[in-house]
Design a protein around this nucleic acid. Sequence first.
RNA 1: CGGGGCGUAGUAUACCGGUAGUACGUCUGCUUUGGGAGCAGAUAGACCGAGUUCGAUUCUCGGCGCCCCGACCA
Length: 415
Amino acid sequence: MKQSQLFTKTRKEAPSDEVAKNAKLLIRAGFVDKLQAGVYTYLPLGLRVLKKIENIIREEMNKAGGQEILMPSLHPKELWQTTGRWDTMDDLYKVKDSSGRENALGPTHEEVVVPLMKQFISSYRNLPFSAYQFQNKFRMELRAKSGILRGREFLMKDMYSFHEDEADLTRFYEAMKGVYARVFERAGIGAVTYLTFASGGSFAKYSHEFQTVTPAGEDTIYVCDTCRVAVNKEIIEEQNTCPSCGNKDLRKETAIEVGNIFELKTRFSEPFKLTYKNKEGKEQAVVMGCYGIGLGRILGTVVEVLGDDNGLVWPKEIAPFAMHLVELGGSKDAAVRKEAESLYVELVALGVEVLWDDRDMPGGAKFAESDLMGIPVRVVVSQKTLEAGKFEVRERTSGKVEMQTRADVLGAYIQ
RNA sequence: CGGGGCGUAGUAUACCGGUAGUACGUCUGCUUUGGGAGCAGAUAGACCGAGUUCGAUUCUCGGCGCCCCGACCA
């Protein structure tokens, strides 16, 4: 798109009350806006990133056999009373309508998905399967903090799987570890994200979190470099060794939890009487697992991990645009404008997402903004590049600059 | 929820018991155009409420909001 059409603006300074790197950079670059503590609007550039993350997750969930649905946010009180969580979950938002009827704003969706599936599960022949959604969750955090990392309303992917028995749940659960690792790899934080052993509550020995190492993290984990997993604080206090290889030499890090997977077993199927008939015709409780990923949290974590002094740095797969085409002096110099436009048109025809800075501004301002936005590749068209008969191509991550021919530039996007 | 800090134009800040100055932004015009450019002009502000006072943006109290530490975060 043409940058002159983009309604957002960048800022030189972040609001003084923002401390979190993710909030500072995302607000300065015009990716998000804060409505209130822990509640953010995604602006066009930020939403593009969020949607890229969503699509990666969608692709991976579909590959794993997940079927996408969308459940509501308003949950009748009765469902939450059935599981007892109306009274025990203290970060539950409760809303009352004018007739006095009470609802919960969903912080998670077991209370909806389990009754839902009663209609569709009656026999072992219906199992196993899994369903997932992308949906805004509401949690009444007493203290929202760390920019977009801990919000009161946030977009989450939650998947629920349904099985005949624990063996089948375990099979699926183990497969999901790989699926999650792939999601974080594609989002650009694979190298610093660890499968982490966490407390499994009373029903499973462990649950697993995916923790990304960053100073902005709010959890403490202990990384085992031998088998590339980590252990969270609760577990380490019990046993002080890597549960996977017994290694005692663990490295302490702060990390942010970007996802988790949990064996629910029959915790929710029992209160709702979600059952199936097995081969012998006997009624059995459905065995379940759940799998969450916070999308905004991934976005914020990427900023924390990769952002530098000049601004945001986006990995290719989730960048708002693939290329920032920066034209210098194009509004006065018809030849420059023409060159920029023809490259833009050609790239767009190839399906490349290009942000074309066609505005009338000094070069320095354009470069500073370009760095701040963090698009992976910047291509400059100016009198200088015109004279050279080439384009100047710069990589945001390394700062490496190269003069390339049109064929080179286009070639990078042709499979 | 306990503790701490902070609320002044869109943003960042300054001064002051006598109604507020600067920079950036924004708007106009001209000049610029390879690292947030220059000149001229314009625009725009004391979170809310109560109290003290002749007078409160300034002092006091309360509320609300924001940030940080802690607790909490299936």
